[in-house]
């Protein structure tokens, strides 16, 4: 398959040129829901990285056994397994964080980024390429999620990673920590990125 991108290309594409959030507009549920503070955003990004990497590697290992009409079932089964493992690990070792994230960790099962990467890359390419694709895409997701979380946490609470960065006189923009803040920040960021890339 000469026309398939190489491992390095897959990695680079995932981070910015084909950023899952800003370019493909995938995985927006966690981007909007858990981006009101950095700690939650980083935990979510780490969980997605774990699930995406494991799902891509497993899918790539069994790619020659997949039947076209049963592949989505296999992807979903694989993803759901790793999401459940991630959820249990969080509940065991980061109990408070797992309570904060609530249903959003189990909801990674329906995160389109992961099923999209299984379909586009892992079910067609080697394990190494699939792994580097997973890391690239996860990095892109982490960047997008934390960019929104940073803006929302700083403007909404005057803090960054729960440390005060703005003077105490800052009137916390509560709306930034609430759901509307997620839509506002995401819209503005998306517009800015489209504007910059169209001016190139």
């Amino acid at each position: 398959m000469a026309d398939q991108p190489t491992a390095t290309e897959r990695f680079i594409q995932g981070v910015l040129p084909e950023n899952p959030v800003y370019r493909q507009l995938l995985g927006l549920c966690p981007v909007l829901a858990v981006s009101n503070n950095m700690k939650a955003a980083v935990t979510m990004a780490a969980s997605v990285t774990f699930v995406l990497l494991c799902a891509n590697v497993v899918t790539s290992l069994i790619r020659n056994l997949l039947k076209p009409h049963l592949r989505i079932v296999v992807f979903t089964l694989t993803i759901a397994t790793f999401v459940t493992i991630a959820d249990r690990i969080l509940a065991a070792y980061l109990y408070q964080m797992s309570k904060t994230l609530g249903p959003y960790i189990p909801l990674i099962i329906v995160n389109c980024i992961i099923i999209c990467r299984c379909e586009v890359c892992a079910s067609k390419q080697s394990v190494f390429t699939a792994a580097s694709d997973a890391i690239g895409q996860s990095l892109g997701f982490a960047l997008a999620l934390s960019s929104i979380a940073a803006i929302r946490e700083i403007l909404g609470t005057g803090m960054f990673f729960e440390l005060r960065v703005l003077p105490a006189a800052w009137p916390d923009w509560v709306i930034m920590a609430l759901p509307p803040g997620a839509f506002l920040t995401f819209g503005v960021m998306l517009a800015a990125i489209n504007w910059i890339s169209s001016n190139k």
């Binding site: 069994i62 039947k67 089964l77 397994t81 249990r88 690990i89």
Partner: peptide, 25 residues
């Protein structure tokens, strides 16, 4: 067959995760 085999394999993997982490949770 692949789906069934994977389901069996993943199922037992999840059972062992639950057995080892359940008490801690």
């Amino acid at each position: 067959w692949l789906v069934l085999l994977l389901a069996l394999f993943f199922g037992s993997a999840l059972a062992s995760v639950q057995l080892s982490l359940g008490p801690k949770i």
